[in-house]
Design a protein around this nucleic acid. Sequence first.
DNA 1: GCCAACGTTGGC
DNA 2: GCCAACGTTGGC
Length: 157
Amino acid sequence: MRYWLMKSEPDVYGIEHLAAEPDQTDHWDGVRNYQVRNMMRDEMRPGDLAFFYHSNTKVPGIAGIIEIVSEGYPDHTAFDPESKYYDPKSDPENPRWYMVDVRLVRRLQRLIPLPELKANPALADMPLVRKGNRLSVMPVTPEQWAAILAMETSGEQ
DNA sequence: GCCAACGTTGGC
DNA sequence: GCCAACGTTGGC
């Protein structure tokens, strides 16, 4: 069982959107980065847990916890010319992009804002807090996972 | 809205 | 295979 962090822009698809889905479950589509594709296709397993991170918004931070509930499988939005995620170089015979299904476990009691995450020395190695990082999905160590969960109830620092 | 950082593309 | 140009990400 592994831990992850997955970014999404709340104006496009935030934790409230996932909460409104049937079974609070949806597919995590639109990933168009090879490193992330490989993680979703090869490493994620049902039962893995992930933080749901809100990016590119007024207060970026960790909003909740989701569970991976499927293996990686081809991202069909890449096959759809009408989709904004359409990629003519991906086809069902030889899919280029993959996605997983996720289910909302719970929202955090408070959103943990990025500046707080940056200020926690236990998280210094996370790609999330490193300059110039652009991974939208990244692994989280058990130690980092515990450190973040501890911040949920500890308030500022 | 700006812009730094980074990944991808394509000419050569 | 190099690398400049371009597009995207995402914090601020």
